[in-house]
């Protein structure tokens, strides 16, 4: 059954090669967001695009075995909680909400700029899983609207 869902083998093969590269590039854009252009939002959308590409190439059933819509929404909430808790820790440590309570570090290193990297990762989890969940919801809606009249005809 798995071989007959999704697109042609050409698309599946290209997806297999590209997905790892896209994930690595998305992680690079997120983790180096405070050094080079990029940040949490583009990296998160890129990671969401990886899952959307797998959904388009292999079909919705296979990708939902890896990351279902429930897991996506839970990870989404975890991202929001990380952002909120960074703000609250800043409130208790530094006296103001979202205070940058970690050390500044030296420029051009990954571990610099304090809480920015944590917030970037939180935004990545939030945006990526959020957009992926929206795409899954749209795909489910399309199945309900388009596929069900065929069952009635049979």
């Amino acid at each position: 059954m798995d071989k007959h869902t999704g697109m042609t083998p050409i698309v599946k093969m290209i997806t297999e090669v590209l997905c790892g590269l896209m994930l690595v590039f998305g992680a690079f854009i997120v983790l180096y967001g405070h050094i080079t252009p990029g940040g949490g939002f583009p990296g998160g959308v890129m990671i969401a695009l990886v899952y959307i590409l797998i959904t388009l190439a292999y079909g919705r059933v296979i990708v939902e075995r890896k990351v279902s819509g429930i897991i996506a929404s839970v990870v989404d909430d975890i991202g929001a909680l990380i952002f909120w808790s960074v703000g609250m820790i800043g409130l208790f440590v530094g006296g103001s909400y979202l205070f940058n309570f970690l050390g500044k570090g030296s420029p051009f290193h990954i571990l610099s700029a304090g809480t920015i990297i944590i917030n970037n990762i939180a935004i990545t989890l939030k945006v990526g899983m959020c957009l992926y969940a929206i795409f899954l919801a749209l795909a489910i809606l399309q199945r309900v609207v388009i596929d069900e009249p065929k069952e009635e005809e049979e």
Binding site: I35, G38, S106, A113, T115, I116, I123
Partner: peptide
């Protein structure tokens, strides 16, 4: 801030409230 990308230092340090609001909108 210590970040060499000034856009990131604005949206996640100086103006982090705005980013939190955008995350809540999402």
């Amino acid at each position: 801030v210590g970040a060499t990308n000034f856009v990131t230092s604005v949206i996640l340090d100086y103006r982090a409230y705005d980013t939190l609001g955008e995350a809540m909108v999402l």
